[in-house]
Every structure is written in C-alpha cells, then in structure tokens.
Nucleic acid binder design. Structure first.
Lengths: 363, 363
DNA sequence: TTTAGCACTCTCTTAATTGGAGTGCTAAAA
DNA sequence: TTTTAGCACTCCAATTAAGAGAGTGCTAAA
C-alpha cells in the first residue's frame, strides 16, 4: 500500500494501459500493448511489470484470465504524476471563445452554453451552477402592483441576481405610492449588505420596515442557502457509455445523482471547500469511499467567477475511465472565459479589484 | 378492427385485466382473475372472453402460453369508455392545496412544487412549463449600470415574467441618466404590446430607440419562441418501473426525451394544439405511431393559467400501464390550483376578465 | 533481467434438458 | 346457446453441459 516511485517503463506501461482502457473500456492484455505500440519488450516482460503494478494496487484483473484494468488508485497516480497537463488546442479555444462571445449579452445563456460546451467536448455530463454573490449586496428594488393588494416585488442584487416574490398588503396602494416606497428604500439601501439593511429597519415607518425585512430575508437566502440550482447537460450521452449501459445499478445511481441534486450539492460543497479558490481544479475519482452513489464515476470540479464576490461551480461527471487530461484542460478554459464574463458584469467594488482585473486582462 | 361496444362482462374483464396489469406489470391469467376477484364464472369462460377481446385487438399475448396484456388500443378503450373519472380524495386535495398555499408568494416555487406533487402522486415523471404570456405586455423596464459602458437591462412583463440582458453603450452614462431613460420609456410603454411599442420607435431619440428596439425583441422572444423551458421531476423513480428497468432501449429513450426537451416541446405543441383550452386534458398513449421515442410511454397533458393571457403546460409521463384515472384526477386538480394562482398574480386586463374569474371561482 | 513456451484458469457462447404456467380445444352439462 | 371441466399442447425461463478462446503465471533457458 506504499506508493513508491515507478520506473519510467512502469510509468509508461501504466499510462498506456490507462489510455487504452479510456478508449474502449475493456481490460488491456499484454499482447495488445506490445502489438499496438510496437514496444521492443516481450509480452512476458510486460506481464511481469503488470503483475508488479497490480501488487502495488494500480491495476487489477476482473478475473484470472483477463487483461488488466486500472484501479482508482491507478487513475489517481496517473492524474497526479503521469499526466502532463495539455492546453486546449487553439482551434478549439477559438471555437469556444467565439460561442461565448456571441452569448455575451444574454446572461441567461451563459450557464447552458458552458454546460453544453463541457458535455460536448468531454463525453461526460456537465454540471454547472450560476454565479452566486458571496455577500449579497442590495442594488435595486422594484414594487409592482398586480391585482388588488397583491404586489410583485423584484429585488436586484449586485451582480445581476434577481429575486422575485409576491407579497400581500394589508391595505391596497396604487402604483405611484408603491414606487415612492421603492424609491425611498433604494436611496437608503443601495450598496448595502443584508446586515447593514437590517440596521436601518428600526428607523423606517412600519410598511417600509416590513418590506425591508423581506428584502433582508431574500438577501440572506442568497448568501446562505446551500441549495444552488444545478444545471446539467449530457446525461443521455453519458448513459450510453458501457459502464452505465450495462449496469442497471450504476445507471440508476447516475440518474438519481443528477436529478436529485442534493447529493451533488453536498459533494461540491465538500470537494470545493473554501480552501479551493478560483482556478483550483479538483478531481474526485470513484466517490473515494465517501459517496456510494458516485462509486462508478469521477468528477472534475472547479470554481469560477470573482473571488470574494460572486462565484459558481463548473464540473464534469463521467465514468472513472475519463479522459482526465483533456477534461481538465477544457474545464480550465471554460472557467477562464466565464471568469472574465462574470467580472465584466460585476460592478467593481473597489479600486483594487479594478487593478486586479487589469492585470488579469493583461495576461 | 372495428370497435363494437363490449358486453358489460367483457368491459368488466378488460377493466380488471388493466387494473391488474397496471398494478404489477405482468401478463394476467384467467385463473388469477377468477381467484382474486371471486368471479362466479369459470376460468374457461374468462378465457373465451379473453380470446374475443384479443380478436378485437384490446389484448395480446406476449407468447402462446402466457396470460394477456392490454394493448394500446385496449388502454385507449379503457380511457375513453370504461374509466369513470374519480375526483381526488378530499384528504389529498387538502394536502396539495395546503402546500400550494404555503408557496403562494414564492413564485419561483410554483413550478417545482407542481412537478413534485404530480410525480409523487402518480409514480410517473412530471413535466411542467412556467406560464407564459400569450401576448407579451410591457410592464416595467429597469436599467442598471454595472461596469463602464455595460448596462444590465431588466424587463418586467405583465404577469411577472422577467427578461434580463446585458447591453453595451457607445458612451458611458451614469445611473441617474439611465434611470431617466428608463422612466421615460416606462411612462410611454407601460401596458403596450410588442407591436405597439414598435410603433413608437420612430418618435424616440436614438439611444432610447435602440433600447426600445431591444425591448421589442425580448418581448417577441417571449411570445413566439417555441422553446419553453421544461421543468421535470421524478425521472429516477420512473426508471425503476419494470418496463424501463429491464429494457436498455426504452430507458435510454426516456432519459433522452426528458433531457433534450426539444422532442417533448413538439409533442406538447402538437397534442395541446390551440384547440385544447384550459381545462382540456389530453391522453397520449404509446406515442400513437407518431413519436418513436415515446413508444413505451403514455402522457397526460393539460394547459393551465388564464386563457388568452398566460398559460403553461402540466404533464405526466409514465409507462403505458399508467393509473390513468388517478393521474387525470391529480393533474386536473393541480391545474385548477395553478389557474387560480396565476390569475391572482396576473393583473386583470379588463373588467370582462375579472367577471370571468368570478364565475370560475363560483364554480 | 528478459524471454519463449506451455499448462492452466476463467468467461462467454451455444445447445440440450426440464419444470411449469397458461392456454385452446373438445365434449359434456346447464 | 352458453358455460364448464378436463386434458393435451405450447412456449418460456431457468439449469446444466460442453467447447472455444483469450490471457495469464510459471518455469526454464538465453
């Protein structure tokens, strides 16, 4: 169970075995390796090395007379030490950048587009959450009378997040009166956090105070509520992959994980704990003993957005034999594109942030 | 292939066979029927009737020595002539009504809640679209400066639909100037349709005209764009049903249909063509030859909302052997609850509408 | 340390066998 | 004319058997 450094030859073999297994999902035989890659060692030598790699726990045999299959430990070794991080080919970079550029002003399209790009380029299922303000900041309130005493309240937060809510007044007001209230609150609260708004509550007349109270509640939900809506894409294609197509159980698990969301939310919160900032990519292989439902899956996760202001999550969910190098490259690239877009849409809080931004753009 | 009226006994047998098959998804044998329902006819008589029902195309045998399974035609006969429409039990009615009452002011919760109720009570997958204004009507525009020349534009339509979009100004403006523009447009356009807004375009100064142009575009999207976001719930549970759990193909079809949405959108548009108004429930059994991917499924669909103003779709997708009676009752009930909620949230256009509503409430 | 050679193991496929569930049919009963 | 008991028949589903093939581990030689 130690993890000694492998000889170059052992590393190469492990890499080739993973490469083959990722391609066609079948156990890899010694003969196949020697033939396909014109190795100038014999199959027997390969078998000896394989036996050694198996002893270390990097490979396993489904049964005595089958080829070898990489274990989760093997994949992890590969990701940590064998895989060279390749950048995404410029052609693809341009294609993706172009698509995002076209959707630049359609905020609602960012998330679907990101998911679609990830799913298409990795053959896995993409999982994306919208950027969420870390500290909700009041931007603008709108009150619209709809019917009798019913009022539609629209709260815009810094960064463009919108919260809407119906509320019922005790006595009917007309649109003019409502607009006045909204104006007053806007002048008072614009730029404030939930806590700061709360501090003003006592100073307000009753009705405005009630509304402001609701505003505070909504702002609180934004920041604390862990339930971040997950958008996903590519599940049907992923289900075609042999490991899921063949096993009743794992495909059912997969569907449940993506549809029920709550598990995925805890996984994301856990794997992408606050220590992982923008730019940090995490790889979760086979549930790692902690999540039974992800036994057959790997996930690649990262955060995007503007640190300390608004961040979202970007992820790819695929079989354990996932093309890690490529997937990580794609996810990195998409995250960077989104970083810029979120930044631009976000009103800078301070001069420092602006300068950071300029630096980033210069890069 | 004619469809003569069945004798009462034949009808009863068909109903029982469907009932059994709906329960446990297996072929039903003559002996089982006689035993379980204490019929005072012999198995041989039941077999004779079954043979006749098979001749008519209402039943079929998976193979020579199996029991009978209802055909799609059999289910259709059942839905059209045998099934008595039961109302939902008052207990369940109260429970559901209560849940909706609690979510009354949280507009964003309506759709998930409706889907969740449908999925839970029918063992199928629920499919719901948000109510969409038939004629988009301008309500309110908000322009918010975010960063440099970037402006977040928020357009609120009658009924509470919100459209947001980023736009880039050629010269930077401050928030005060933007708010003035928004105010002017609001005074001019409030209550107008896309066409009417467009008529004003020429009379506006350049910048305002450009913004109004964008408003028109967004309003047009609302009304015409066929791509209505579908929300669904209950897929994992549905996949556990034997017909999908056992067949690779049909479960893959099911996932694809729900995830890709486009097919479902055409199906809905087709089945719920304009002739079907609020309150009309449509039953689609086994794709009916028109949709290969729905071969193994049935759907129950209805519209909800306020006719001619804002309507959405409510549906249940399940196996062909679906508990039709119950599912139709649930969907009717949920649709009615939503009708009221949408109505209240919708500002009445005219006195007539108000009166209609009162009539409806009286019912 | 590497390699050729060979016996061995295990899966996968196909074929044959069997038990049993459920029917259709026939002839008698109502 | 309709219903029913009885029985032969059919077909599936599960079990067992056998054979082919793939791939390994091991041994002994290079």
């Amino acid at each position: 169970m130690e993890s000694p450094v492998l000889t170059p030859r052992q590393g190469m073999l492990l890499r080739l075995i993973i490469q083959e297994n990722v391609r066609d999902a079948t156990p890899v035989a010694s003969r196949m390796l020697v033939d396909r890659y014109n190795l100038d060692i014999s199959t027997a030598t390969v078998r000896n090395e394989m036996a050694y790699l198996e002893e270390l726990g990097y490979l396993m045999q489904p049964h005595t007379s089958a080829g070898r299959v990489p274990t989760e430990k093997g994949f992890r070794y590969f990701v940590e030490r064998l895989m060279e991080e390749q950048a995404l080919p410029p052609v693809e970079q341009r294609m993706i950048a172009h698509q995002f550029h076209q959707a630049r002003d359609r905020i609602g399209q960012w998330i679907p587009l990101a998911a679609s790009v990830l799913a298409r380029t990795t053959r896995g299922a993409a999982v994306v959450t919208a950027p969420r303000a870390v500290h909700a900041v009041y931007k603008h309130l709108e009150l619209i009378v709809t019917h009798g005493r019913a009022v539609l309240m629209i709260l815009v937060l810094q960064g463009g997040t919108i919260k809407q809510r119906m509320l019922a007044l005790s006595t009917p007001l007309n649109q003019g009166e409502l607009s006045e209230i909204a104006d007053r609150l806007n002048q008072l609260c614009s730029g404030l956090t939930a806590g700061e708004v709360m501090a003003h509550l006592a100073t307000l007349p009753p009705l405005e105070s009630d509304i402001a109270q609701l505003v505070v509640t909504l702002m609180g939900q934004t920041a604390e509520q862990p339930a971040d809506e997950l958008y996903h894409r590519g599940l049907p294609e992923l289900l075609q992959e042999p490991e899921f197509a063949e096993s009743e159980d794992s495909s059912a698990d997969l569907v449940r994980v993506l549809e029920e969301q709550s598990l995925l939310q805890t996984v994301i919160a856990d794997v992408l704990s606050p220590t992982v900032g923008i730019g940090g990519v995490r790889v979760l292989i086979g549930g790692e003993g902690r999540w039974e439902e992800l036994r057959a899956c790997s996930m690649i996760l990262t955060r995007y957005g503007v640190a300390n202001h608004a961040t979202g999550t970007l992820g790819v969910l695929g079989p354990i034999r996932m093309p890690y190098g490529r997937a990580i490259a794609v996810i990195r690239f998409v995250a960077n594109v989104l970083n810029e877009m979120v930044y631009e849409m976000y009103e800078p809080f301070s001069q420092e942030l602006l300068e950071d931004q300029d630096d980033q753009e210069a890069i």
